[in-house]
Computed example of a mutant assay.
Amino acid sequence: MRITVSGPPGSGTTSLAKAIAEKYGIRLVSAGDVFRQNAAERNMDLLSFSKLCESDPSVDKKIDADQKKIGEENSDIIIEGRLAGHMVSNADLRIWVLASADCRAHRISDREEISYEIARHDTDIREKSECDRYMKYYGIDIRDLSIYDLVISSEKWGKEELAQVVDFAIGRINR
Rank of each mutant, 00 (worst) to 15 (best):
K159Q: 10
V29W: 05
G85L: 13
S153A: 11
E41N: 12
E155R: 00
R143D: 15
A84G: 05
H106I: 10
I70A: 00
G158P: 14
A31M: 15
I170Q: 07
S89Y: 09
I147A: 01
D149F: 04
I70Y: 01
A91E: 12
V5I: 14
P8L: 13
R172N: 12
I114V: 07
M135D: 11
E161F: 06
I152T: 15
Y134I: 15
E80N: 14
K159I: 11
S153W: 12
G10T: 06
F49R: 07
L28Y: 00
A169C: 14
N174W: 04
C103L: 06
D45Y: 02
D33T: 08
N74R: 03
I173A: 08
E130A: 13
N38V: 05
T13K: 15
I26V: 06
N43W: 02
A119F: 01
D167F: 05
I170F: 06
R172W: 08
K51L: 07
Y137V: 07
E130C: 02
A119T: 04
V34W: 04
K159D: 06
D60T: 11
Y134N: 14
D45Q: 02
C131V: 08
L150E: 00
S100W: 00
E112C: 03
K69T: 04
D92Y: 04
N74Y: 03
E130N: 08
G12N: 12
K136P: 02
R94T: 04
L46C: 12
G139D: 09
I140H: 04
N38Q: 14
T123C: 07
R82G: 09
S89E: 14
N43L: 08
Y138G: 08
A119Q: 01
V5H: 07
S11L: 10
F35H: 02
E22P: 07
R111K: 12
C131F: 15
G10C: 08
S50Y: 02
K51G: 03
E72V: 00
P57E: 12
G158A: 14
E41I: 07
A169G: 10
R2Q: 14
Y137A: 02
I140D: 12
S58K: 09
N174E: 12
G25D: 13
D33V: 11
S50W: 05
